[in-house]
Write a protein that binds this DNA or RNA. Structure first.
Lengths: 207, 207
DNA sequence: TTTATGTTTAACTTTTCTGTTAACGCTGCA
DNA sequence: TGCAGCGTTAACAGAAAAGTTAAACATAAA
């Protein structure tokens, strides 16, 4: 019994693990059940045994992937810190997160484009809707207090996210443009953990 | 004869037009030849008549799409303008370009992730490799002259691109986050044509 | 009018991928 | 010992997509 359960869990989790990798790499349409089975070293029928069909399997993975990105966004928004510190922390956290989940952003963005509705249902079900209200208010207060120059909070939030995420999704392009190898690009990304925050702060601070 | 040729061109171009749309929307794996044929209002066999097979059809479209993005990048790099003006112009041009080719960036990024080699061959064949050398030099000179604060040129270039492109690829996410509709988001993007440039300049200028 | 050539169509073939089923086997328990 | 139940497998069925072919069609030139 315990042996069985152990194996169950191992197989089931192994599938999820591998499927996550494959779906994130190839996207829903490009992923092959056979490929997932091969990489998990199991019979293809097992995929259907544990997860009824491709769509169900995908569903779980997408939800999961998506949920990984939201809480970190809310960290950004809700943290109880002075604005500049918050920016530094958020940027650092977010870049670190994406470091560990390389093709998560592109995966989510690509699937979302095809199927923006997935969003709404996902959001409303899990109640983890990103809520930038607090951050936006904080920005407005800092502007009013004259600590930063006037700027639409939405632009600031968008800029923050853009500067964090885009360098990951555009890696192949920029490695070519800058003519640098994998290791160097890693370093480049690493250096952005501090660079991006400073770039933003320099832009908005009143000197 | 002239009638034939006219029709040839019409059909052939119609295919290319429609296929571009479908491929950019769905990606290679998600695109269906039948779907392309339907939208072009032709028999599916015609696709094979004009473009041997799916891969060949895709190839042409990808090259084309890709080529659309490179010249504009080089405009950024090579223009003979003072740095700040260059930034303003580049940002404006690039955002305008993406405006007219909404799903081009996500398409290219997604396909490139699966197949980074497509790049190299593409680049070397067409000799239109993006070359940021001039811009990088210009940035270094401005730093030396004390007109802007010290910053790695690669970061600056990356930031520029990120701020221009990411808001387009992440549209579904941010419409939800900011709770705004299509029309308003359009306006938001529109306003970034100037906003982004000022954001960058504010960050690097010495006050 | 006939013929040659390029275009278009419908029907068919092949391949690829997903989903199902029935049988086998292991393991724990009566 | 045998049986109950889950896990596993191979083989199969079905659907969907890509690709092919042969004949019909249109048009321009002879």
């Amino acid at each position: 019994m315990s042996n069985k359960k152990e194996r169950d869990i191992t197989t089931e989790q192994k599938i999820l693990e591998v499927a996550t990798e494959v779906f994130q790499q190839k996207g829903y349409a490009g992923a092959r059940m056979q490929d997932i089975a091969d990489k998990a070293q199991i019979n293809r029928a097992m995929l259907h045994y544990y997860y009824r069909n491709k769509e169900k399997l995908f569903e779980g993975i997408f939800q999961n992937a998506f949920q990984k990105l939201i809480p970190s966004m809310n960290e950004v928004f809700d943290a109880d810190l002075p604005l500049f510190d918050k920016i530094r922390q958020v940027v650092n956290n977010y870049i670190t997160l994406v470091f560990q989940n390389r093709n998560l952003p592109l995966f989510v963005l690509h699937e979302l484009q095809q199927n923006p509705e997935k969003f709404v249902s996902n959001f409303f079900v899990h109640h983890t809707r990103p809520n930038p209200a607090k951050l936006i208010q904080q920005i407005q207060e800092e502007i009013k207090a004259g600590n930063i120059r006037p700027i639409m909070p939405q632009h600031l939030v968008m800029n923050m996210m853009s500067l964090c995420i885009f360098p990951f999704v555009s890696q192949p392009v920029f490695q070519q443009v800058f003519q640098i190898g994998d290791a160097q690009y890693e370093q480049f990304l690493e250096s952005r953990k501090t660079e991006v925050a400073e770039f933003i702060i320099e832009s908005i601070k009143v000197k």
